[in-house]
């Protein structure tokens, strides 16, 4: 039961993009077309889950026992950067079809603050292993959901007549604000 609340909380109530303000650069950057948004969403779901699991293990098994918690930021960013690089090479060799689909988005993920953010939240909230995995999958799904919904809205902008000073980023941010307002409505359910 607690896990269901955690999942709903992470996807809808505390949506990582619209409520926790993490990962906004790719949110505005790759949401102009539906296909790229779906590709980025999938890449994030995959990387975020693996990255949180590894950083969690590093934190519990290396940083805490050896009193190195102050190195957390450096350790986490290095783990994520190395992981992204490794996943890229591994995918290229073994899953070329998936690599073709996700390839260009993988390097971008290193600087996606949502991945580091979720890893940090998992450690801060002191989740156990199951909660940590569930929370990071759900957060990533929430990210993908918001990104795909936003891309759908943004595709409509092409046929709308938008005043020139509002075009592109300005209208994008205001639309994201309205979406975030809609997601605020979920805060009653958990």
């Amino acid at each position: 039961m607690d896990l269901i609340i955690l999942v709903i909380g992470a996807i809808l109530v505390k949506n990582i993009l619209l409520m926790q303000y993490l990962g906004n650069c790719p949110f505005l950057g790759v949401s102009k077309r539906m296909e790229t948004a779906v590709g980025m969403g999938m890449a994030v779901i995959f990387t975020m889950t693996v990255a949180s699991a590894i950083t969690w293990a590093v934190y519990k098994n290396i940083l805490v026992p050896y009193n190195l918690v102050y190195m957390q930021t450096i350790a986490f960013i290095l783990v994520i950067a190395a992981l992204v690089q490794f996943v890229e090479i591994f995918m290229k060799k073994t899953l070329p079809a998936l690599y073709q689909a996700l390839g260009i988005f993988l390097p971008l993920i290193t600087t996606n603050c949502a991945v580091l953010g979720v890893a940090l939240i998992c450690v801060r909230e002191d989740y156990d292993f199951v909660n940590m995995v569930v929370y990071s999958v759900a957060s990533a799904v929430g990210f993908a959901l918001a990104l795909v919904l936003f891309a759908g809205l943004r595709e409509r902008f092409r046929i709308a007549r938008i005043p020139q000073p509002l075009q592109d980023t300005a209208i994008g941010l205001i639309t994201a604000g309205l979406m975030s307002l809609a997601f605020l409505g979920f805060s009653g359910i958990a």
Binding site: P165, A170, I171, L173, I174, G177, S180, L184
Partner: peptide
Amino acid sequence: AKAPGAFIGLGTLLFLMNAFDR
């Protein structure tokens, strides 16, 4: 004070700057 205000506030400031430039 909440998330929607952040997005809308930043979007509006960006709009005002673009309009001023124009």
